[in-house]
Write a protein that binds this DNA or RNA. Structure first.
Length: 857
DNA sequence: GACATCTGGGTTTTT
DNA sequence: CCCAGATGTC
């Protein structure tokens, strides 16, 4: 067994007595229910401590989900509560689904009766629908997504004559979102903050935005919780009702909660008997050792004053009931969108008498990987401190590999993946985790060339796709005629000759009479204010909607959706579209209609679509996963590649600039998350030159590399040779004074990296002459590429890889063939080399691809 | 009103 | 460099 020797930085909680606890646990284990067997003593304690507040600090890979689901099973089987009396919140639908699934397995039947297991937003939305009238909404209100929000704000800005170039709607949306995340209603926004937008109009805009939402019978994501909080505060009888209902509360990923979610939980977690105020709602100052940036600090904290003023009447005495929060402060990576690590750091203070349980036994990674991750995260100061340990063997060391530039990095990783594949590794067990999504393209290009199957995780979600949003807009207008945003979205989609001018006049008309756009349209077609052509198509549209609404009564909602898509000409619009992704979009539309079957009716579907629709699937095929570090949280792979560990990219310069020390610590946690995704192999990369926004710049290795423990890390040479060209002209490193764990590294590569780093400063000009086309060669086939420059300039290198990789068989394609590629669309074959084709794509430009990836068009 | 050209801006992402 | 939004032209 390997034990990390890193001492806990903060030990707010004494260690539990291993002897006594262990014996007691073992004694119980022999008689306990079946679902408890196989839990280690800490996990078991987390499951069995049912009374009072519990914080489970669950490090990466320590069986967090298992504890949560077992705890629910335990509560149920002990008869402590019925399924409908347990509130269990997660952040993502995926996590909620996973819990439901595992619970079903554990209990041996599907968990139909857990209506309150879901995401914060879906549960908040559910509660809000019950009390919609208290928020001046109807229970069929629409949930707006960011796009709708921004368009609405744009309209408000126009109405106020504010230049939306100088004051972009998107920025205002971000501000409002931030306020809502902090639980602030328009009247509670600190005046200083409200004033920063549009010369003091920010607060007023927030207020009028809220008014507009009510008129549109709509709520945004933030409202789903904020309106809950307001209703709870203003109606003690209602909050009491929920407090009584929820006998147990479980929270997943507590480190990611924001202030609003925290307040919401506080309100629900009080014992119903006390209609009391909440101590601990005073959020002043927990130690803020990690807050190094005063400016940011000031902007993050002002909400606190507001929190102090919570208008909750009643006695002092508080009974907090059985709330169990599970989280890992070391995996808090969403501070930039309002998550408050403080929530978890302050748990014991907020919930007096809380029991804190640490899960420190890692069941995922090998010794070296865990040691590297632990050592890295130990550099953070603001943490509760955990000491992860594993009983697994040491395994392979974490590797650090430097390359000349990002192309070489991608090439090297591609080769290593092929190597792993030859060793029998499943591609599904290989992931590349990047800091920023622009890093992905280089890998995609490379994989396409190699013919290596891959999938990108994350990216635009299903319901964010234009075609889905369009289809939904049609259905929204049918369901809710007051939904102006939806109407506006589809009024001229597909093109009907109803452009800006027409819409503008509908707006005027609607505003004058205070009616929705749709009704305005109905009225306007009776007049001759529009040109005959526009008038005709608008009349047709109104008639169509009337007909669809009538059909709704007698037609299944899935059929109706299909009818609407067909009759509106929307399907046809994509059928006619010759672009590469049209086929995929039609497929998505089919998928949308199919997914409607799970819902009772149109109303039910629309209520949930914006909250629970996420893309899934595609996991059947064996493919390498490509994603950001953020979207990797919660996942694990045998083999994890971590490219781009360079100053500026990772840690991200922008985070450092904006959030200072706290930002650096969050970046470091991101590194920790990345490493702990790996079960057996973790491979880190950095490049000396990287192209950012089109220009090449020279970079220096990430300071995080210095923070890895030398004993668990192996420095390897970049495949294909000498790494660093170091073109001089640097200033002193900012990090010379940082503790350098890696200073004892002795391989040539590392020394060169160090030498380069110590000369390093901010990239500055290194615009090397890399304009030449990618030198794609296969190292294994070309052992003697000596120096970088000889590789770079030699024309043969371009052919090297193609020759090496060619199958030798003649391609079934001929020059000038018209072909279609899933990703790049249509194109023409310009060159053939064995099974590798060079294709000039209509949209995507010239690419080299393997012939099996294209078909004749 | 529809299409072409231009400019500016560019982490991370859930709901 | 590459995309989205905004402006300009027919």
């Amino acid at each position: 067994m390997i034990r990390m020797t890193e001492p806990s930085k903060i030990t707010a909680v004494p260690d539990h007595q291993p002897a006594a606890g262990g014996i007691a646990a073992r004694a119980r284990a022999s008689v306990g229910p079946k679902y408890l067997s196989g839990l280690n003593p800490e996990q078991r304690e987390a499951v069995e401590t049912l009374d009072g507040p519990v914080l489970v600090l669950a490090g990466a890979g320590t069986g967090k989900t298992r504890v949560l689901t077992t705890r629910i099973a335990h509560i149920l089987s002990q008869g402590r509560a019925r399924p409908a009396e347990i509130l269990s919140v997660t952040f993502t639908n995926k996590a909620a689904r996973e819990m439901k699934h595992r619970l079903g397995q554990m209990l041996g039947h599907a968990v139909e009766g857990m209506p309150w297991l879901g995401t914060f937003h879906s549960i908040g939305g559910r509660i809000l629908r019950f009390h919609a009238e208290l928020a001046q909404l109807k229970s069929n209100f629409t949930v707006l997504d960011v796009d709708d929000q921004v368009r609405l704000l744009k309209q408000l800005l126009q109405a106020e004559n504010i230049d939306d170039k100088r004051w972009p709607a998107r920025m205002l949306a971000g501000l409002i979102d931030g306020w809502k995340n902090r639980g602030l209603m328009p009247s509670q926004v600190p005046s200083g903050e409200a004033a920063i937008f549009a010369n003091g109009k920010g607060g007023k805009l927030y207020a009028s935005y809220q008014e507009r939402l009510k008129i549109l019978n709509a709520a945004d994501f933030g409202d789903l919780l904020l309106e809950n909080i307001r209703i709870f505060r203003e109606h003690p009888d209602i909050v009491r009702q929920y407090q009584q209902r929820f006998k147990y509360i479980l929270v997943d990923e507590y480190q990611d909660t924001n202030v609003a979610q925290y307040l919401w939980l506080r309100l629900l977690s009080q014992a119903p008997s006390s209609g009391s105020s909440l101590p601990g709602l005073t959020r002043q100052s927990v130690a803020s050792s990690q807050d190094g940036s005063p400016g940011l600090d000031a902007s993050r904290r002002p909400g606190d004053d507001q929190d102090n003023a919570l208008p909750i009447p009643g006695a002092e005495k508080v009974h907090v009931k059985n709330i169990c929060c599970v989280g890992d402060d070391d995996q808090s990576i969403y501070g930039w969108r309002g998550a408050e690590v403080d929530n978890i750091l302050r748990f014991e203070h907020d919930f007096p008498g809380a029991k804190v349980i640490r899960l420190e036994r890692n069941y995922r990674s090998t010794g070296h990987i865990l040691a590297a991750a632990s050592h890295l995260i130990a550099h953070n100061e603001g943490r509760l401190g955990k000491t992860l340990r594993t009983e697994d063997h040491d395994g392979e060391k974490v590797t650090v590999t430097g390359s000349w530039d990002s192309e070489e990095e991608a090439r090297g990783i591609g080769e290593e993946i092929e190597q792993l594949q030859r060793q029998g590794e499943k591609l599904n067990e290989i992931a590349i985790l990047v800091r920023a999504s622009y890093q992905m393209r280089e890998f995609e290009d490379r994989f396409v060339t190699l013919g290596l199957p891959y999938r990108v995780i994350g990216g635009p979600r299903f319901y964010e796709r234009a075609e889905i949003r369009d289809a939904l807009a049609y259905l929204r207008v049918i369901n809710s005629p007051a939904d102006d945003l939806a109407f506006e979205r589809i009024v001229n989609t597909p093109k009907r000759g109803l452009g800006d001018a027409t819409v503008q006049m509908l707006h005027d008309h609607a505003r004058k009479r205070r009616i929705p756009l749709f009704e305005a349209a109905r009225a306007v077609v009776e007049t001759d204010e529009l040109k005959p052509k526009a008038r005709g198509s608008l009349r047709d549209l109104v008639t169509q909607f009337d007909r669809w609404r009538a059909q709704r009564e007698v037609t299944a909602h899935t059929d109706l959706a299909q009818i609407v898509l067909d009759e509106s000409g929307y399907t046809e619009m994509w059928q006619k579209d010759r672009s590469a992704d049209a086929a995929g979009r039609l497929e998505n539309l089919k998928e949308l209609v199919r997914s409607m079957e799970e819902f009772e009716n149109l109303q039910g579907f629309l209520e949930h679509i914006s909250l629970v629709m996420d893309r899934e699937g595609g996991a059947e095929d064996d493919a390498v996963s490509l994603m950001t570090l953020h979207s990797a949280k919660g996942l694990e792979f045998d083999n994890v590649f971590l490219p781009g560990w360079e100053e500026g990219l990772f840690p991200s310069q922008r985070t450092l600039d904006e959030q200072g020390r706290a930002g650096l610590e969050e970046e470091r946690r991101l590194g920790h998350v990345g490493l702990t995704r790996a079960r057996r192999r973790a491979k880190i990369y950095f490049a000396t030159n990287r192209r950012i926004h089109g220009t090449w710049s020279t970079t220096i290795p990430s300071r995080f590399l210095d923070e890895l423990p030398a004993a668990n890390v192996e420095i390897t040479e970049s495949k294909g040779g000498s790494g660093w060209g170091g073109s001089g002209g640097y200033g002193a490193s900012r990090f010379d004074d940082m503790e350098a764990f890696g200073s004892s590294y002795s391989t040539p590569g590392w020394q060169r990296a160090q030498a380069n780093r110590n000369r390093g400063g901010q990239g500055g000009g290194g615009r090397g002459g890399f304009e030449e086309e990618t030198a794609s060669f296969s190292t294994s086939a070309s052992p003697d590429f000596g120096s970088f420059s000889s590789r770079r300039r030699g024309p043969l290198t371009i052919e090297g890889e193609l020759v090496a990789k060619s199958t030798g068989t003649t391609s079934e394609f001929a020059l000038d063939d018209r072909v279609f590629h899933q990703k790049f669309g249509y194109g023409r074959v310009t060159k053939i080399d064995g099974n590798k084709l060079t294709i000039a794509f209509d949209k995507a430009g010239e690419k080299k691809v393997v012939d099996s990836f294209v078909q004749r068009a």
